[in-house]
Amino acid sequence: MAPGTRIVSLGHYQPARVVTNAELESLVETNDEWIRSRVGIETRRIAGPDETVDEMAAQAAEKALAASGLGANEIDLVLVATCTGLDRSPSMSARVAARLGLSAPALLDINVACAGFTHALAVADHSIRAQSATNALVIAAEKMSDVTDWTDRNTCVLVGDGAGAAVVTASDKAQIGPVHWGSVPQMSTAVRIEVGRAADGTPDRTAPICFAQDGQTVYRWATTQLPAIARRACERGGVAPEDLAAVVFHQANLRIIEPLAARLGAVNAVVARDVVESGNTSAASIPLAFSKLVERGEIPSGAPVLLFGFGGNLSYAGQVVRCP
């Protein structure tokens, strides 16, 4: 087995259209102060009608691949984390591989909603260390605007679209720590993207697929249960929270991110707050925020960073990585 793996490079992509809180006031009963005070979001990026999940994924992946120094023919594993791919087949990973001109990679889509990227990163780490792959593209891309009810003020103010990607390769020294992952299946319906239901509870196939959540349930779970789980991810990575250079949580809500960082004890860490300008981009939020921090030079190369995803299914996954 390979001794370890590392993230070589990152890339991200966001649509051009910026939607402000003021613009949402014309759609639902809301206002800028209400949105900022409850979730901390000021703007979000929304994809155009013809801008697809795989197109955004490929844009982010191209940037990560270009920064890695590897050729497209050297990628032998493509993992795409998404919960907003509307087609069942071909997979998003197949569509992205075709867009990038890859030759014969193994392909896998991973749907763990908001924790998708950290799950996919763990799968890439395991695959390379087991010598089932050599170089992996790990991508998360979401078009949340496709599954949003724009008349529901509790959810439409949250969402954004975008993608982030990482190139992962073998390393003489482990720079991606062991994953700590799990879920609360009994509470999995607290966050959902599903078709509407008829009066008898059966699926209504004529209804649109929509994102919905029990916001208070998610908030209580995240703020009370996740600090201990995040600390366990740090322990598995051999890094104390106070020694972290950065913390990149799923960008769900600023009212969750800031208390979680404080209760974790990451007192010296840069805390990603990309949710303020990008909204909640589900699986894409962690690589998107991480890539921006690295691009801006806010994290030193080689410094320890906690990546921690949580949300849909009430799943979670986190690992300490070294900054590329």
Rank of each mutant, 00 (worst) to 15 (best):
Pro105Glu: 13
Leu107Trp: 12
Leu108Arg: 13
Asp109Gln: 06
Ile110Asp: 02
Ala113Met: 03
Ala113Gly: 14
Ala115Cys: 03
His119Ser: 01
His119Gln: 03
Ala120Thr: 02
Leu121Asn: 04
Leu121Asp: 02
Ala122Arg: 08
Ala122Pro: 00
Ala122His: 12
Val123Ile: 14
Val123Lys: 04
Val123Phe: 10
Val123Gln: 11
Ala124Asn: 13
Asp125Ser: 12
Arg129Ile: 03
Gln131His: 09
Gln131Asp: 14
Ser132Lys: 11
Ser132Trp: 07
Ser132Asn: 13
Ala133Ile: 07
Ala133Phe: 07
Ala136Gln: 08
Ile139His: 00
Ile139Gly: 00
Ile139Ala: 00
Ala140Glu: 00
Ala140Tyr: 01
Ala141Glu: 05
Ala141Pro: 06
Glu142Arg: 07
Glu142Cys: 09
Lys143Met: 12
Lys143Tyr: 12
Ser145Val: 07
Ser145Lys: 10
Asp146Ile: 01
Val147Cys: 08
Thr148Cys: 12
Asp149Cys: 09
Asp149Trp: 06
Asp149Ser: 11
Trp150Asp: 11
Thr151Glu: 13
Thr151Lys: 15
Asp152Pro: 07
Asp152Gly: 08
Arg153Trp: 04
Arg153Gln: 06
Asn154Thr: 15
Thr155Leu: 09
Val157Ala: 02
Leu158Asp: 05
Leu158Tyr: 06
Val159Lys: 04
Val159Phe: 15
Val159Tyr: 05
Val159Ile: 14
Gly160Trp: 02
Gly160Met: 03
Asp161Pro: 12
Gly164Arg: 01
Gly164Glu: 00
Ala165Pro: 07
Ala166Met: 15
Val167His: 01
Val168Gly: 09
Thr169Ser: 15
Ala170Glu: 15
Ala170Lys: 14
Ser171Glu: 04
Ser171Met: 05
Asp172Ser: 14
Lys173Phe: 08
Ala174Cys: 08
